[in-house]
Design a protein around this nucleic acid. Structure first.
Lengths: 185, 185
DNA sequence: CTTGAAGTAGAACGATTGGTCTACTTCGAC
DNA sequence: GTCGAAGTAGACCAATCGTTCTACTTCAAG
């Protein structure tokens, strides 16, 4: 193995694909992915079996990273109530970034019309993970109805990501934060 | 002309494209569109100049229809406050429909990576129209800050559409309605 | 009856797609 | 030193993409 040079073609491919899928959509051609990753055509098919396998692997890894991002956002504050509100402060920064292009998972769902495409299982898993995270926080602060509140917070997050992608200048995360404060109580 | 048989190839094409673009995304092939519309290949290029022109025309017409849908949703109630809340009742029905697949305009934005594609101008126009509608209603009921409230309502609507597309069973419109009531005051 | 615009049907185009395959290189393990 | 797994480079394939084009039909206006 290459314990030193560390990143082999598999990782380079995952990185490049995650970048290009996000910035240009899942319809980017295999050629563009290979060029961006500086990887031979053959490596893609040996490691991932095909483009679909690469898409799935990218989503699986991205879901881990993104859930960790939410955990980090929560960890930035101490008070249970501030922890959840802090997520929207982080979202405000995220959405303001020039590179922001919306929610990776929803974009993926839209890109694959076939409901049996393996990508959908990954996006669903991410949403369950995020929802579980919200429920956990709400339970920790003894919220009266954690499930219902988590649904509302989730809706506010999704709305923020859409609004941020289509009119980022308006700081939708702040508008969402005010409503989140109501939800949390 | 054909004042009788009424719907010529142009209208059939618009109808078919609106249906297929929504259910399968803007990546549906020209062949599928022509077959669905029972229209000759040539007619598409004579009437719309190409697939891009068809996309633009579909969005322009859909925006009219959808804004009219929101107007109708508002008109279902009399009291200024109930008019806006009624929109979320209508959204609840819309989202529950088995055919519902999310917001046409956001899906279109994601489908075309090129920021100069004419489709983006149409989606932006629709959002401006919807926003203006919300502001108008809020002003009519003497809301303290119509612009800010419209932004929040818009965010709730977008969030509802995303949540409805990904987990329609949960009635996200009801969750959004509760928050909308807070926004309206 | 004729003419011409508008429609249909479908072959064909160049480009691009995802995927397969061959030939060559690299490099650590034995 | 040799061997084999893993990687690179790139030709190649069938399918599909949006688009152009020709040939035939339809039908109302003059």
């Amino acid at each position: 193995m290459h314990p030193r040079s560390s990143i082999g073609p598999r990782e380079r491919l995952l990185d490049a694909a995650q970048r290009l899928f996000y910035s240009q959509g899942a319809s980017v051609g295999v050629d563009a992915l290979l060029k961006e990753a500086n990887v031979a055509r053959r490596s893609l098919y040996e490691h991932f079996g095909g483009k679909d396998g690469l898409v799935e692997a990218v989503l699986r890894r991205a879901a881990e990273q993104d859930l960790a991002w939410y955990e980090a956002a929560l960890a930035a504050e101490a008070e249970p109530r501030d922890r959840l509100l802090g997520v929207f402060d982080c979202l405000d920064e995220l959405v303001a970034d020039a590179e922001f292009r919306g929610c990776r998972y929803f974009a993926t769902d839209l890109a694959f019309a076939d409901p049996d495409h393996p990508a959908h299982a990954q996006t669903a898993a991410f949403r369950r993970g995020l929802r579980a995270l919200l429920v956990r926080e709400l339970e920790a602060m003894d919220h009266a109805d954690p499930e219902a509140a988590a649904e509302q917070l989730h809706l506010l997050i999704e709305g923020t990501l859409v609004a941020g992608a289509t009119q980022g200048k308006e700081h939708p995360a702040r508008a969402a934060r005010d409503l989140a404060a109501v939800v949390i109580g």
